[in-house]
Structures are given as C-alpha cells and as structure tokens.
C-alpha cells in the first residue's frame, strides 16, 4: 500500500542530538560527509563510524530504525561492492577463476565504499530522525538567507518545502483512494502493453491533479485568513539559538575530523 511509505521520518525526542540547533546539525553533517571522503585509511573510517554510532546512541533512536534506513539501499550497497570487487584488477591477486580476478586492492576498495556509504546514510538519517522537517526547512532558510541579497526568494522556497512536506501524506492518501475507485470501475492497471498501462494512468492523474488544485486554492485562502503576507516581518515560534551544546558538538566533531586527518597522515595501518 502506498500509505506505508514514510516520508519525513522524524522521530520526536528530547536527546541532546534532538536539541542541537538544526543549522549546526546541517553544518556538522556536511563536515562529516567531507571527512568520510577525505579519510582513506580503515582507521580514519573507523573513527568516523565510532563518531556517528556514538551520536546515534546519544539520540536514543532505536537501533532497528537505523537498519530500516539502510534496507532500501541494500541493492546499491551490493552493486557498488561487487563493482569494486570485480573490476579492480591491480594489486595482489587473491583469487582467480576463469575471467574472475579478485585483488586485495579490490577488496579494500569495496569495503571502503560500503563503509563510506553506510556511514553516510546513518549520518543523514540521524539528521532526519532527530530534526523535524519544519526545523530542517527553517534551518535551510536561515543558512541560505544571505542569498536574499541577490534576490533569491529564500522564504518562499522554504514555505513551499514546508507545504510540500505537509501535503505529501495527504496526496498519497488521495492517490490510494482514486486508484481504488477506478479499480472498482474496472480500470485495469496491471496488464497490457506499456502504452496501455500508461493510458490507464490517465484516470488516476487527472483526478489527482484536479484535487491538488482544489486543495491549493483552499489552502491559499486559509493562509490569507491567517494573515499570511509573505516573509516580511514574520517571527517564529521556535527561535534558532546556538547554545553551549552546539559549540560542544562543533568541538567534538572538529576533534574527530582532526583525528581522522592525522590518522591518514601518519598512515600506520595498512
């Protein structure tokens, strides 16, 4: 069923990770991703993993949620792994059978890529688990607000993102309903040629678009009734404020990144 898809997978909580300034969280995640790609030793990556897993523990998000976020990306992981494993043909040969050659470099590169991607997913899902979509869009709006100078409509874009996030579940529900209704009228969406199937989507898309427009018109009216008049002079319920926590988090991350870079420089593993 369509409505089983979760988007905006915020997991409410009160942990220190939850309470970090979302702007800081975004900056930290960006730094973390950069670090992952700078690191080219297992030690470096290991430090990165310890860092992100530590943060995960602090957040109090159940561990199975982490596995859940990895699951849809399994095919990608396997694919990248195999690609590196099979197509890197330089270095010490570990295994050879007909045209299959697996080298030590292949194994390490594959392992590297997988660890990197896993760490990246864990890191970014930690961001979305601990930060509500509205905080995220808010943070993005603030981080990009200097762009207002060059006439980028930052507030409008952020507002659009918020509304999109708010309406995705509603529109998914709409789609579900319309599909059921057309199926009940004998619409056949599962058999036939590609062209026939594409045509079978018309009875779904037309009502969906019509209903989205209706919703948009009504929402605009409701927003006007609540004194919406653009971003000018707006205040926010939740002020973004950096506090001691945020500086501490910055410091901890900086220490880890330095550790990774140093580890690479010394390069005493491998």
């Amino acid at each position: 069923m369509l409505k089983d898809i979760t988007i905006g997978q915020y997991f409410p909580g009160k942990s220190i990770i939850h309470r970090l300034d979302p702007r800081i969280k975004i900056i930290l995640i960006v730094a973390f991703i950069v670090m992952l790609f700078i690191a080219d030793t297992f030690f470096g990556l290991g430090v990165g993993m310890v860092f992100v897993l530590g943060a995960f523990l602090l957040s109090g998000i159940p561990f199975k949620m982490m596995l859940k976020s990895l699951k849809p990306l399994m095919p990608l992981l396997i694919f990248t792994g195999l690609l590196n494993l099979l197509f890197i043909r330089t270095g010490d040969v570990l295994f050879k059978w007909r045209f299959l050659i697996i080298t030590k470099l292949g194994v390490t590169t594959a392992a590297f890529m997988i660890i990197r991607i896993v760490a990246l997913i864990i890191g970014s899902s930690l961001l979305t688990y601990t930060t509500s979509p509205i905080q995220l869009t808010d943070a993005i709006e603030r981080l990009f607000s200097p762009l207002k100078v060059i006439k980028v409509p930052v507030h409008e874009l952020a507002m659009m993102m918020t509304i999109a996030l708010r309406f995705i579940p509603t529109l998914i529900e709409d789609t579900d309903k319309i599909m059921s209704a057309q199926k009940a009228r004998g619409a056949d969406m599962e058999t036939g040629s590609i062209i026939k199937r594409a045509k079978a989507l018309v009875p779904i898309f037309v009502p969906l678009i019509v209903s989205s427009f209706r919703r948009a018109v009504e929402l605009a009216l409701a927003m006007e009734c609540r004194c919406y008049h653009g971003g000018e002079g707006r205040t926010r319920l939740k002020q973004l404020k950096t506090s001691f926590r945020d500086y501490a988090a910055l410091l901890v991350t900086a220490v880890f990144i330095t550790g990774v870079v140093l580890a690479d420089k010394i390069n005493f593993f491998i």
Binding site: I134, R215, E218, M223, R226, Y228, L237, K238
Partner: peptide, 26 residues
Amino acid sequence: NPDNQIVATIVEEDVAFALENMGVEP
C-alpha cells in the same frame, strides 16, 4: 475541509502560523 487549512507538519507549529505572520514575539 480540515486537511486544506493546516499549513505545518506539526500541530503546534500550525497553531503558531498566524502569530508568526503577525510578527508576535516568540
């Protein structure tokens, strides 16, 4: 239609919407 007048993704943020537009202190 209750769905078409809620703007935010969290209840309290939605209730705050009008006040934010009016520029009330946080």
